[in-house]
Simulated assay, not measured.
Amino acid sequence: MSTVRTMRRLGAVSAAAIAATIAFAGPASAHAEVTASNAQALAKDVVLTFTGEAESESGGFTEVRVVLPEGIAPGDVTLDEAPKGWKMTSTKDGYTLSGPKLAVGTNAVHKVKVRQLPDAKSLAFKTIETYSDGKVSRWIELPGDGPEPEEPAPVLELKAAAAGAKPAKSPSPSPSRDAADKASDKASGTSDKASGDSGTTEKKADEEENSNAGAATAIGISIGVLIVAGAGLWVFKQRRSAG
């Protein structure tokens, strides 16, 4: 009997240990990943699918932020598919998707189309996920020579570029608001300066006109004086001749 009881106890302890291990390993096994419709360097119009596995037991996803790797500009990416009600917002180094919270335990899956993949062997997409309960998962660690990262960023391995494939030029980014404001301020300053220069020119013109008018008046008076003096001298000579 004692042997049977011992076996039962060992069985119970083993079951509890297994359950605890599973419970502990469950959230840790969650991760973020990326796949591609064509995982090849310099491939065009590639659809990337991002999957964020739910790991919160009390909240649903509300936001996913992706940092694009070098060679992919925010302007090269367009939204292809996302959870209902979620919207994309471009950032200086990638994009953010956010919207109504997903049901607890529901994975966050979205797709974007990339104009062209860069000429690289692999691409890492650092991803930050936010839940409605305030939990934040940061899948931003890059693989290296050391131990495997605990929170690895999604990495896409690429095949070599097809023969003859060439990188296309990315569309020129739109001027930022700051740049637009600076341009506007500069234009305004130029306009004000031009206005000030115009006022100065008009003032100088008025001064020159007044100066010229004054000079003309002085000359006229001088001529008048000479005429009067000449006439007086002529009358004096006539009278002297007559006398």
Rank of each mutant, 00 (worst) to 15 (best):
V47W: 02
G230L: 03
N107V: 08
D178G: 03
A205R: 12
E141S: 07
A15L: 15
S172E: 13
E55I: 03
G59K: 05
K182M: 11
Y95Q: 05
V13N: 04
T78L: 05
R65T: 11
I18L: 14
G99C: 02
G11Y: 11
T78K: 09
F50A: 01
G52M: 06
S29R: 08
V47Y: 04
E208N: 13
P83L: 11
T190K: 12
R239L: 13
M7L: 14
P147V: 14
K135R: 14
G164W: 09
A162Y: 08
A231L: 10
P167Y: 10
S98N: 13
S188R: 13
F50V: 04
P69C: 02
K87T: 14
G26C: 01
N212K: 14
S98M: 03
P69N: 05
V114Q: 00
S184F: 13
L102F: 03
R138K: 15
G232C: 07
A165C: 08
K169E: 06
S137G: 00
S58T: 14
D145K: 15
K87W: 05
A216E: 12
R177W: 13
T21W: 11
G189Y: 06
F50H: 05
A12Q: 12
N210C: 01
E53S: 08
K193G: 09
L142P: 01
S29Q: 11
R115F: 02
R9P: 00
M1E: 10
P175A: 04
R115S: 05
N212Q: 12
T78H: 02
R5V: 05
A215P: 00
S172A: 15
A19F: 10
L117E: 02
H110R: 03
F125N: 01
K166P: 00
P74L: 02
K101G: 02
G230I: 07
P149F: 10
P143Q: 09
L68P: 07
P118W: 02
E208R: 15
L79W: 05
A15V: 10
A103D: 10
E202F: 11
E148P: 00
K44Y: 00
S170T: 15
L226S: 11
R138A: 10
G214T: 13
T106F: 04
R8K: 09
D45G: 07
D45L: 08
L142T: 10
K101R: 12
W86K: 02
V228W: 05
A229T: 14
R8G: 00
D45I: 05
L42Y: 06
K92E: 10
E157Y: 10
N107C: 03
P69I: 01
A242Q: 12
S172H: 06
A120E: 08
D178N: 08
I140V: 15
L97D: 01
S58I: 09
